[in-house]
Each structure stands twice: as C-alpha cells, then as structure tokens.
C-alpha cells in the first residue's frame, strides 16, 4: 500500500558564490512514497512561498533522468541513495518515516555555488569546447552506411556516450576529478572511425583544459563509477589514459 512518511530536511542555504552558507532545518509531514524527491522539494517550496519566504534554489529541468540538470548531494551520495538514477528519478519510498535527510550542493572547486543547491558547471562546457567533437562541418559528408561499424564497437561507443554531464562523478571524487566525464567523451569518439582521426589531439586538449579549470587528479578510488547515474564505466578512464599516452609519445 502507499507509504506516507514524515521527514526532517537539513538543506544547505547560501545566498551567492561568495556568501557564507549554512544548513537550515525543515519538517515535512505526510509525504507519499510515490512523490519524487524533487516533487518533495516543490512541496517544501510551495510551503515557503506561502509563508512569504524565498524558496530553496535547485537546478532541474526534464525530470526524467536525461537532461543532467538536476544535482544534489543527498545523505552523502550524489543523486541520493538509489543506484543508476538521477535525483529527479529518486522517489520518497526510499526513505523511512522519521528520517533526517541532508541535502547539499555538488561540492567541488570547479563548480562554484550560485545559490543554495545550484552550482555553476560551465567548466564542463569548456572542456567539450576544447575538443569534444569531430571536426566536420554541416554538409558534404559521406553516406551514413558508407562506413560499417561493428555492432560491438557501436554499442561500446553508445555506452560511453550515455554520459549526461551532470557532474556527479566530480562531486563523488575526493579529488574533484573530472576524468570519468572527460574519458566518456574521449572514448565515444576514439572508438568510432569518424572520431579516431583526431583522437590523440582530442585527449590532450581535453585533459589540458580539465587541469587548467581546477579539477583534481584521478587516483582510482572508483567513487565516480559507483555514483554515476548512467553507469558509465571507469574502463573509459583506462582508454583515455592510453589515448593520452599515445599523444605524449607521438610528441
């Protein structure tokens, strides 16, 4: 039967990037287990607005786990306690009556807080701009079936391409490394013949940009893989390292 719970929320509030933040505590009663986590925050915000207060700011958009806009560090886990989902797909049935739920923004030097639970992930765009593409213009390309690609390779590329750019990997990493994000894009394109041509330069440029933007190093703790809502594998990081090494050797 439908589960109804009462919870206590400890939510990070911070007015702006430079402001000092603190936790604020709220009580919410009568939450249905079928409510999504973000709908629970909607209920809280509706309550705050009705009391004349400013709502908690958090990023969200598609609410079906694909746009990558939602974030939230819930009880010490990016995207909360359930596996292979984003915060917007997390449902309150995963919590129990009387629970205290702690909600924080992504914490990383490269993702400054904008307000409350919202962070600035522009650094990810910059990494893609550094080389996360195949250099083709619109038009004048060969027929789509001109280059056969084995199903195995296509599927592997698709798995790497599943990354939604949410930043959970960075938030989960004790070093604040973006290696899973970078390696997913590098792998997708390095696996496919279309992207292979620029593979070395791409790996080099994206890694250099990542370092420049203040992301940390990878020390193989695998927390990123654990917390990735799309199950992107750290075998991609091994592939990135190979591409990177090849580039360095070629130089």
């Amino acid at each position: 039967m439908e589960k109804i719970i009462n919870i206590t929320l400890k939510i990070w509030r911070q007015k702006g990037p430079k402001a000092k933040g603190n936790f604020e505590t709220f009580k919410l009663d009568g939450i249905s287990g079928d409510t999504s986590f973000l709908e629970m925050l909607d209920i809280l915000n509706e309550k705050l607005v009705n009391e004349g207060k400013e709502p908690v700011a958090f990023d969200n958009d598609c609410r079906e786990g694909i746009c990558g806009m939602c974030s939230l560090y819930i009880n010490g886990h990016p995207h909360g306690p359930d596996n292979l989902i984003t915060t917007c797909q997390l449902h309150m049935r995963h919590f129990n009556d009387g629970d205290t739920v702690t909600v924080e923004p992504w914490r990383s030097a490269a993702f400054p807080v904008i307000r409350d639970l919202m962070v600035d992930r522009y650094a990810f765009d910059k990494i893609i701009q550094a080389g996360g593409y195949v250099s083709v213009n619109t038009g004048g390309v060969p027929d789509a079936n001109a280059i056969p690609i084995s199903k195995k390779i296509a599927d592997e590329a698709m798995d790497a391409a599943s990354c939604i750019g949410c930043g959970a990997c960075v938030a989960a990493c004790k070093n604040g490394s973006a290696m899973l994000f970078v390696s997913a894009k590098v792998s997708q394109l390095a696996l496919l013949p279309q992207g292979k041509i620029e593979a070395k330069e791409r790996a080099e440029a994206m890694v250099a940009k990542m370092d420049e933007l203040g992301f940390g190093n990878c020390t193989n703790t695998r927390a990123c893989e654990q917390e990735c809502p799309k199950g992107v594998s750290i075998s991609n990081i091994a592939r990135l390292n190979r591409e990177f090494l090849k580039a360095k050797l070629a130089n």
Partner: peptide, 22 residues
C-alpha cells in the same frame, strides 16, 4: 536523408546490425 549522414559523421552512435550497417 542528409540528417542521418551528418549525425553519423559527427559520431552519433546509432544502433547497428551485426553486419555493421545502421
């Protein structure tokens, strides 16, 4: 028809058959 060609050239990993075609 041009759209599919364009997307494949960009590295969009469309589903493929075992023979390697789309």
């Amino acid at each position: 028809v041009n759209i599919i060609d364009q997307c494949v050239a960009q590295g969009v990993p469309f589903a493929r058959e075992y023979g390697g075609l789309l």
